[in-house]
């Protein structure tokens, strides 16, 4: 009964909302034009990366905070009592992983570099790095992670800290995260590079601390 009622409500909602979407006026504010007009000052040649790290860089700052926060919760609740034995190694998988992992590292560096002018950037690069770590773990070549030591903690937090430090440093001169146009490209590259490493570690950690 409840099942039916909820399904009916959801269906009615979907139909009514789709009907509302079919006849919409043109938007009053033309943001793509505004982005286009300010691209030269952003220090980035690719519009999505420019929005992500410059125009709306503050969203990105908070979002890295969300990711780090999730990792802290995972660390706090991860069950540690079960002894971890390495999975039985499959030779084919191991060989493949040994070939793939360095290539993935290379791909991550490329994605980071490409982010400035075409699709790519720190998140994509970090995700590929994390995937390489997970692949190595699944192939039995890398152990699951235990409670992180000092070095790993610093690695996990470094990207966020650099981002915060840049934000705070720029605040002395102007607004929060207000990059001077001359420095914008270099500062964003610095943030992206450290973020790549930290995001890779965090995303890998979300898997490897749990497994």
């Amino acid at each position: 009964m409840k099942r039916f009622a909820v399904a009916l409500l959801a269906a009615l909602f979907a139909v009514a909302l789709i009907a509302a979407l079919l006849e919409l006026p043109a938007p009053a504010v033309d943001l793509p034009a505004a982005v286009g007009a300010k691209m030269a000052e952003s220090g980035i040649a690719h519009p999505v990366t420019a929005v992500l790290l410059n125009f709306r860089g503050y969203d990105t700052l908070l979002e890295i905070g969300v990711l780090l926060l999730a990792l802290i919760v995972v660390l706090a609740v991860a069950a540690r009592e079960e002894a971890k034995q390495p999975a039985v190694a499959d030779p084919v998988l191991q060989t493949l992983a040994r070939i793939a992992a360095p290539l993935m590292l290379l791909a991550a560096v490329y994605l980071l570099w490409a982010g400035a002018f075409r699709p790519g950037g720190a998140f994509q690069a970090g995700a590929v790095l994390a995937a390489a770590a997970v692949l190595l773990h699944l192939a039995g070549l890398a152990a699951a992670w235990q409670k992180p030591g000092k070095c790993l903690r610093i690695g996990l937090a470094a990207g966020f800290l650099v981002f915060l430090a840049v934000a705070a440093g720029l605040l002395v001169e102007g607004a929060l995260l207000q990059y001077p146009p001359a420095w914008a490209g270099a500062l964003i590259l610095l943030i992206e590079a450290t973020l790549t490493v930290s995001l890779g570690l965090i995303l890998a950690g979300l898997f490897l601390f749990l497994s």
Binding site: L31, V51, L67
Partner: peptide, 24 residues
């Protein structure tokens, strides 16, 4: 429009974090 694309990228990362937390 690059603005919603960047927003969705942010949203995906937030969703990944929430999913990881829920799975943990």
């Amino acid at each position: 429009d690059p603005v919603p694309q960047a927003m969705v990228l942010t949203g995906i990362v937030v969703a990944v974090a929430a999913t990881a937390l829920a799975l943990a």
